[in-house]
């Protein structure tokens, strides 16, 4: 098990290099002159030149590339062009909020979605199944920022149950702050996971080994949870990973709607101000998340399916 995880980690290295390269290339072909944007319209050509010199923008591209790689790998993220604050501390201040939002939303999505899928699968073509289908359709159809705005208006502005903005300070207030935005993301996620669980469980419940479980006298609950769900969770795990990524990018919009601190909000601001080092670091961190989440999915697979464990 430990060895397999080690192997997956090594497998991730080329992916990470590729991701860094893509970020580098993407930023070089972005329109606009960072020096001009950073220093404003009043800057003199000499000031612009000095700035380019300091930022290493005059070096040949391949040199810039290696410097960039080295900086990213050593977490030397530079300073914000706008505020001159180290990018690392900007990220450190905002990233926890995004992680918190993503994790809570994912947890809620699983807690709502998987049982809904089980409910639908075990009551196939009956009322609960139709109910879950309608819920899923709504979840798919409503854009998350719109749903977020609705929630904000109803539960925060009108009913006053939840705070209107910010990220909270101590544990309880952070939980209070994260609840509505996380629920918004979780609705979309549980719609997806619910459908996935339903399909997957229905397929598994038709398998021979489920019949074997019934034949040895297992009751329906045992058949569904012990024998069915564990096998049905494999495709759901993949779906969960994909939806985790969707949530991460969805959090960008949700952070704006709820006026929450976070990586999304930071990145949007940085893009508007063409704050190069911040955009760069944000993109790299998002990319690392993708690699990391894929790694988690692989590990979950190994834990769930013994057949994968032996193959290597």
């Amino acid at each position: 098990m430990g060895r397999m995880i080690g192997l997956r980690l090594i497998d991730a290295i080329p992916t990470i290099l590729l991701v860094l390269t893509l970020v580098f290339v993407a930023l070089r072909i972005l329109p606009g002159d960072p020096a001009q944007v950073a220093l404003g319209d009043m800057a003199t050509p000499a000031q612009l030149e000095l700035f380019r010199e300091q930022m290493g923008l005059n070096l040949p591209l391949w040199q810039q590339y290696f410097i960039f790689l080295w900086d990213m790998l050593t977490l030397n993220l530079g300073r914000s062009l706008v505020s001159n604050v180290p990018v690392a501390s900007i990220i450190a201040a905002n990233l926890p909020y995004t992680i918190e939002l993503t994790l809570v939303a994912t947890g809620m999505g699983v807690i709502i979605g998987v049982p809904l899928g089980v409910l639908a699968a075990t009551n196939r073509n009956k009322l609960p199944d139709s109910g879950v289908r309608v819920f899923s359709l709504i979840g798919y159809a409503i854009p998350d920022f719109y749903l977020g705005a609705l929630m904000l208006i109803v539960f925060s502005l009108n009913l006053g149950w939840f705070p209107i903005n910010g990220g909270g300070t101590d544990f309880l207030s952070r939980l209070h702050h994260v609840f509505l935005p996380a629920l918004t993301l979780a609705m979309v996620k549980s719609a997806f996971l619910g459908r996935l669980t339903r399909t997957s469980l229905l397929e598994v419940l038709g398998k021979d080994y489920v019949r074997t479980a019934r034949a040895k006298g297992a009751r329906e609950n045992r058949v569904i949870y012990r024998h069915g769900l564990r096998n049905a969770l494999l495709p759901v795990t993949t779906g969960l990973g994909l939806s985790l990524l969707a949530t991460l990018s969805g959090s960008v919009a949700i952070e704006l709607v709820f006026n929450r601190p976070g990586l999304g909000e930071t990145l949007i601001g940085a893009i508007a101000e063409r704050d190069y080092p911040v955009i760069q670091a944000g993109a790299v961190i998002f990319a690392f998340f993708v690699v990391f989440i894929n790694l988690l999915i692989d590990i979950a697979y190994i834990a769930i399916d013994p057949r994968i464990r032996v193959q290597s």
Binding site: K207, D208, Y209, R211, T212, A213, A215, K216, G217, H227, R230, N231, I304, D305, P306, R307
Partner: peptide
Amino acid sequence: GRDIAMIFQEPMSSLNPV
């Protein structure tokens, strides 16, 4: 399983893989 037990035609797929 207690009074009446059954063995199936398909040994490859009749056991729970996990």
